[in-house]
């Protein structure tokens, strides 16, 4: 009782002002700790390029790159490339999600299916999608189909394997609990297995999104005449180095944006998983 009475006023006396001061202090320092190196790197690039410490023909100043990026976007040339790149990776990623998650949920549930398919999956997963790209070109031609398919192929496995893993690691005790309340197999799946697998599925989705971008660029570099990946290669051939860097930064931006969207979605769906940590 005495302890309970003593505690709150003590906290109240120290908390408001001090806490705010502490928080802002941490905020400023936190900002420096988090972004300081990046800002330093950007500044170093700019200075060393304008001062001629590095060859400006290879590392043009950042303002030149920004100008090239703006010109490309304003004229609509780069927008076309972005659109076609997004379409390729979007279709492939969407197809991988649409196939990978349901198949993974099914395979994780039924042991016999999972055991029969696992060796095949492991083999396919270990076979580099890029190494298979020539095969896909032979089968599907040099057009859109082979590009979309190679990205689909590479993104399918992280999603599939993460989903299977997620389903398999669902706590049996929770399933048993649901059963004692008379839940049917379908209800157990919908109310227990599915929500419990969501965090694991998101790990797969984020991995796949990164892979999708990687494969997109590779596929566009090998045999395309449009797309951001193609622009990187094309700009380099034509020695438009600022444009080349502009396309590279654009790709980095796309990757970051995809990750942010997935992280936000994950936070929304798995608030509970954060609390356990």
């Amino acid at each position: 009782m005495v302890l309970q009475l003593l505690d709150p006023p003590f906290q109240a006396a120290t908390s408001p002002a001090a806490a705010i001061r502490r928080r802002t202090g941490v905020g400023a320092r936190g900002f420096a700790a988090r972004w300081g190196l990046l800002i330093g790197f950007v500044m170093l690039w700019q200075v060393s390029s304008t001062r001629g410490w590095v060859n400006p023909a290879v590392f043009p100043p950042l303002d030149t790159i920004a100008a090239a990026l703006w010109k490309g976007l304003a004229s609509g040339a780069l927008l076309d490339d972005i659109a076609i790149s997004l379409r390729r990776s979007g279709i492939a990623f969407g197809a991988a999600v649409a196939l990978g998650i349901p198949l993974g949920l099914f395979m994780g549930q039924i042991r016999a299916v999972e055991r029969a398919l696992d060796p095949v999956l492991q083999l396919f997963r270990q076979t580099s999608a890029l190494a298979l790209y020539p095969v896909f070109i032979l089968l599907l031609g040099l057009g859109e189909a082979s590009k979309v398919f190679v990205i689909f192929w590479a993104t399918l496995f992280p999603i599939l394997l993460a989903t299977i893993g997620g389903v398999k690691q669902v706590d049996r005790k929770l399933i048993e609990m649901a059963r004692t309340f008379g839940a049917s197999r379908l209800t157990v799946f919908r109310r227990v297995v599915l929500p419990a697998s969501v965090p694991a599925i998101f790990v797969g989705l984020r991995l796949s999104a990164t892979t999708a971008l990687l494969l997109l660029i590779a596929a566009e570099m090998i045999g395309a005449n449009k797309g951001v990946g193609f622009q990187v290669m094309n700009a380099q051939y034509n020695f438009q180095i600022p444009l080349m860097f502009a396309a590279i930064f654009l790709l980095a931006g796309l990757g970051l944006a995809a990750n942010i969207v997935l992280v936000l979605l994950q936070r929304r769906l798995c608030r509970w998983a954060d609390m356990t940590r």
């Binding site: 005790k173 004692t180 008379g182 109310r191 969501v198 509970w272």
Partner: peptide
């Protein structure tokens, strides 16, 4: 099998963490 006239309380609470 299981039935609606019985309810089980386990040693662990077995709560669904997302609810």
């Amino acid at each position: 099998g299981v039935g609606t006239e019985r309810a089980v309380i386990f040693q662990e609470p077995r709560l669904l963490p997302w609810l």
